[in-house]
């Protein structure tokens, strides 16, 4: 990639170092700033990370899936987006692939992900 493009991308405020290190299968809680008129409030979106795409580029995104009132909701966040206030890591998941699209065909018990026990 051109050095000049990197220069432009460097002007985006990069807060990635403030976020925890998370990946596919992890359960995270994303705090999203929402603007309603002139007011700004924070909404939380908690769910399983399905994938992280375009790693280490200015267009990096991650997909979070959750079951809301029995309906599955998937939301894609650009990781450099200024509307993300905070990301909390709730639980690490043990998965064997980087893209968890198989969750879409599963419900209830079948959609569980084993917890990854990290040795202290």
């Amino acid at each position: 990639m051109s050095e000049l493009i990197k220069l432009v991308e460097a002007t985006i405020e990069n807060r990635k170092s403030e976020y925890p290190d998370f990946g596919s299968g992890d359960t995270i809680n994303v705090h999203v700033k929402i603007r309603e008129g002139n007011k700004e409030r924070v909404q939380q979106f908690q769910g399983t990370v399905m994938q992280r795409r375009n790693l280490n580029s200015s267009g990096e995104t991650f997909t979070v899936r959750k079951i809301s009132n029995g309906i599955a909701v998937e939301r894609v966040f650009p990781i450099l987006s200024p509307s993300i206030a905070k990301i909390e890591l709730i639980r690490r998941g043990k998965v064997r692939r980087s893209r968890l699209f198989y969750l879409r065909g599963r419900q209830g018990k079948a959609a569980r992900i084993k917890e990854l026990k990290v040795a202290k």
Partner: peptide
């Protein structure tokens, strides 16, 4: 024309943009 990338606006939306020298 140098190439394309994305920037973010105040609402947190990604904007496709072109870098020109």
């Amino acid at each position: 024309k140098i190439g394309m990338t994305s920037l973010y606006n105040a609402d947190g939306q990604a904007l496709a943009c072109t870098v020109i020298q």
